[in-house]
């Protein structure tokens, strides 16, 4: 197991393996997403209270889940990078930030578009919405630190530290609807009792969640490949790779 991890973590192997995996993951993502879109936009019945407008849930909720999930992955990878000096963990952390920021942005925008017709406002400063907005700023902070520091190792360390500190925001976001009185309603699926959503709506919701997760892994691999290639630009295997390409 450890030997496999080590082998996978070696840049040339990672580059080769990720190049092979990314398209498969991408196709799996597309398939799941088409299924989820069909289920959510066509097959699922309208909601008893919100009518057709609730269909935004199928992109809003998975985006919000991903915004939290990716942050935890990013902070975890940063911690691994800081403790064990693992280069690939650094790469995972860097490559995660833009995807995470994208999903956070999507959660905010789709939520806003959902809030206007249902709540009556695009935005309120309640605890849930505010803490999600802070999450977006945290992602910006990580990305900013990365691009501002010239030396990649130093940049990774600084941004990683920042990301780890920002983890405190994650439980705040999740429990905000329970700790404080918010306009945002409580959790539907991720509560301890049975999900309070009808099966015909739950299935496309989960399909979309799986699709977004696959999307994240696909893009993560693609970004990580660029990062690996740039970091290893002077290594023998990269030179050989480029040379072989040029000679074709």
């Amino acid at each position: 197991m450890w030997a496999f991890l080590h082998r996978f973590a070696s840049p040339p192997h990672f580059y080769r393996l990720s190049g092979r995996m990314a398209p498969w993951l991408g196709w799996a993502c597309l398939g799941t997403m088409l299924g989820g879109l069909y289920g959510g936009l066509v097959a699922a019945p309208p909601d008893y209270q919100q009518g057709e407008s609730y269909r935004i849930i199928f992109v809003h909720v998975p985006s919000a889940w991903m915004s939290l999930f990716i942050y935890v992955v990013m902070a975890g990878a940063s911690a691994v990078a800081l403790v064990w000096r693992m280069k690939l963990a650094e790469v995972v952390a860097v490559a995660s930030a833009p995807v995470g920021a994208s999903f956070t942005f999507l959660a905010l925008v789709t939520g806003s578009l959902w809030g206007k017709p249902m709540w009556g406002t695009y935005w309120v400063w309640d605890a849930r919405l505010t803490s999600e907005l802070i999450l977006l700023f945290l992602y910006f902070g990580v990305i900013g630190l990365h691009s501002a520091i010239e030396d990649r190792r130093t940049a990774s360390r600084a941004a990683g530290l920042f990301a780890i500190i920002g983890v405190v925001n994650i439980p705040i976001i999740h429990f905000s609807v329970e700790w404080w009185s918010t306009l945002h309603q409580g959790p539907t699926v991720t509560k301890l009792s049975a999900p309070s959503i009808h099966l015909s709506m739950l299935v496309p919701l989960l399909l979309m969640a799986v699709a977004f997760k696959l999307f994240y892994v696909t893009v993560l691999l693609m970004r990580a490949r660029c990062e690996v290639l740039e970091r290893e630009r002077n290594a023998g295997w990269v030179r050989a790779l480029i040379a072989r390409e040029g000679s074709e």
């Binding site: 991408g26 936009l41 057709e52 407008s53 269909r55 935004i56 992109v59 809003h60 985006s63 833009p98 995807v99 994208s102 942005f105 999507l106 925008v109 789709t110 578009l113 959902w114 206007k116 017709p117 999307f215 696909t218 893009v219 693609m222 970004r223 490949r225 660029c226």
Partner: peptide, 20 residues
């Protein structure tokens, strides 16, 4: 509201694929 949401999601996802 519904189609704007889906359009924004699609655009952002496409950008995320194209950039790397």
């Amino acid at each position: 509201y519904v189609w704007c949401s889906y359009a924004v999601v699609l655009a952002v996802l496409a950008f995320n694929l194209a950039a790397p």
